[in-house]
Amino acid sequence: MLRPSRPAPLLDANTIVPGEPLIEFRDVSIGFDEGDVLRGLSFDVSPGETKVFLGESGSGKTLIMKLAAGLLQADAGHIWVMGHNIGEMSENELLDFRRHLGFVFQEGALFDSMTVAENVAFRLREENVPDAEVDERVREALKFVELEAALDKYPAELSGGMRRRVSIARALVDRPPLVFYDSPTAGLDPVTSQTIITLILRGRDLQGVTSLLATHRVQDAFGLAHFRYDKESNRVVSDDGNGARGVEPGHDQRQVQGAAVAPPTNVLVLREGKVYFEGTAESVLHSSDEYLKKFLASAE
């Protein structure tokens, strides 16, 4: 398993208050020359939750992730992440803060003049982890994404799906408690997309990460809500009932078998810069709303 190189000071008892959201957006707006893209967006993400952002291309999914990571500043509104008011932090404070989150860029954003191993090792090197340990942990992380063989390759020599996986390994190597996945399945075939979702499941169920996932594939939301990664059997198992913890008493039998219930997955649909819909994957599936049905139709 991936181990943290040092305790994450940002996540001590003072910053994670049980019941308090880990991420909070309040009336966040941002715009460019062509007009506002986000228009007063508000939502919360609780610890352990997987929040799936569903939206058309250009709806602002990438912007939300970059805002939450402090890579961009909002024009208006407030953003709190792990107890920090992002808008009030200096770039130096933000750099420190970002060491505690993983960011998987839409296009991978791998360092193209470094090998896969060097890419994954980047953050560990920054923290002056000893060479032997870096080596071991890079191997572990690449094994996690099933790319040990690509250790010495350069990003240009990899396929698109492999690049995404390296990017995931790079984001997870220091085992951050919060991970942003920006459209990790976009443009990939269904099989590779499923592999990526499995990786996210493993991150969630084995490492307990809270995550934001941007996607325009509603299947990704179902994949996260209906499955979980089983530690014992080391594979993905079905987890019907959207994993809402302890909601349905019928699920208790699985606890008997020693398996945990998957943490909650919620879907947030973006439209015209606002939250159009928020709820479980199940409620999207059963919704009669015309706009939501469009996403479901594309999933068939």
């Binding site: 860029f105 954003a109 953050r123």
Partner: peptide
């Protein structure tokens, strides 16, 4: 343009 600078910032490096 390939977001590598942003990736660096996201990894906590100035």
């Amino acid at each position: 343009v390939t977001e590598q600078v942003d990736a660096m910032r996201a990894l906590g490096t100035d």
